[in-house]
Amino acid sequence: MPNKVKGLLERLQDDETVIVAEGYIFHFERRGYLKAGPFVPEVILEHPELVRNAYQEFVHAGSDVVLAFTYYVHREKMRLIGRENDILKMNKDALRMAREVADETGTLMAGNICNTNLYTPENTKEKNSNIKDMFKEQIEWAVDGGADYMVAETFLHYGEAVIALEAMNECAKDLPKVIAFSPVASVKDESGRYCTTDNVPYGEACTKLRDAGADVVGLNCGRGPATMIPILEQIREIYQGPMCALPLPYRTTEKEPSFMQLSDPQNGERLFPLDLEVASCSRKDIAQFGEKCKELNIKYVGLCCGNLACQTRTLAETFGRTVPASRYRADMSLHCIFGTDDKVDKDHREQVHSVIVNDK
């Protein structure tokens, strides 16, 4: 049964901020349990205890939501790795563990669907019907698994987002719906507005989806805070409804606006996907992103691929939260070199400080 905790829409209606930790794909690739390239979370079946632990870790860091790890567990991705027969169990197990952790921690559980990598604007009706069927089966599993609301995300095309919303309206009509575009490409119209890959300005796309039944719309993935914020600002000029913003925690730039374009400053080689740590955001970067979300009145905020628990904690604390992980917030007053507390040995501190920090 769904949680008896305060729902997503009730929180937003009460002007509360909802913190959402995403990024499980990169989390497990870094830990050595997921293959870059196909990016299919086989870890759900092979090491379910680690998936449960990741859910718990992000809640500990301040996430209000356990996002079920069903991203890229759709038929097209499963076909690529030859595990079509495992699709039901993989979805069901990820949803079950998410529901259990949400119940244990008093948080919300969200079902998750994503881009299929099959959509183009030139698709036949039959191909789009197949895409919709892929969405519908995952949505139905999420509803059966007790999801409190649905997330559909990382859409490059407005057209595919529309199909996803239609599927959610049909299969999860009573659940709140969040839809997010991934602004990887730098498509602009004649007036300089950023657009989806099929040339719909993001502000208009969000407005249309809201009118068609989405409850929260916005952006996730693709870009770091620095290059996502200008698009969020453009959306806010047109769309005033509930909005989501979940960038990557990487230092994307105007010259290299997406994480797929980032290059190594030392050798110019592409960083995606294995060397992105070179461009990681600092915790101050994350705090600044949170402050910008406050300015734009964005109430559904989080971090996507590359997210670390410490970054989620920083984001939560930027919104005035004290979360379980706040117990371990840095206290440099007790550091052996930089400490200022009287309990730190003064002679050792000063001698080492002069040698290491001042290099004398």
Rank of each mutant, 00 (worst) to 15 (best):
K4M: 09
V5A: 08
L12T: 03
I19N: 08
V20D: 04
R30W: 05
K35H: 10
A36V: 10
I44E: 03
N53I: 06
H60N: 15
S63W: 05
D64F: 03
L80D: 10
G82W: 03
K89R: 09
N91M: 04
K92E: 14
G111V: 05
G111A: 01
T124E: 06
K125N: 10
D133G: 08
K136G: 03
G146K: 06
E153R: 07
M168F: 01
D189G: 08
S191K: 14
G192S: 11
R193L: 14
N199F: 14
Y202R: 05
K208F: 01
L209T: 01
R210A: 13
D211P: 02
N220S: 13
R223D: 02
T227G: 00
E237H: 02
E237L: 07
P242E: 14
P249H: 06
F259V: 10
F259K: 03
Q261C: 12
R270W: 03
P273T: 05
D275M: 04
Q288F: 11
Q288N: 14
K292I: 08
L296I: 05
K299R: 15
V301L: 13
L303K: 00
T314S: 10
G320S: 07
P324E: 12
A325K: 08
R327P: 11
Y328L: 13
I337Y: 08
G339C: 04
T340R: 11
K343N: 13
V344N: 00
D347C: 09
R349F: 02
V355F: 14
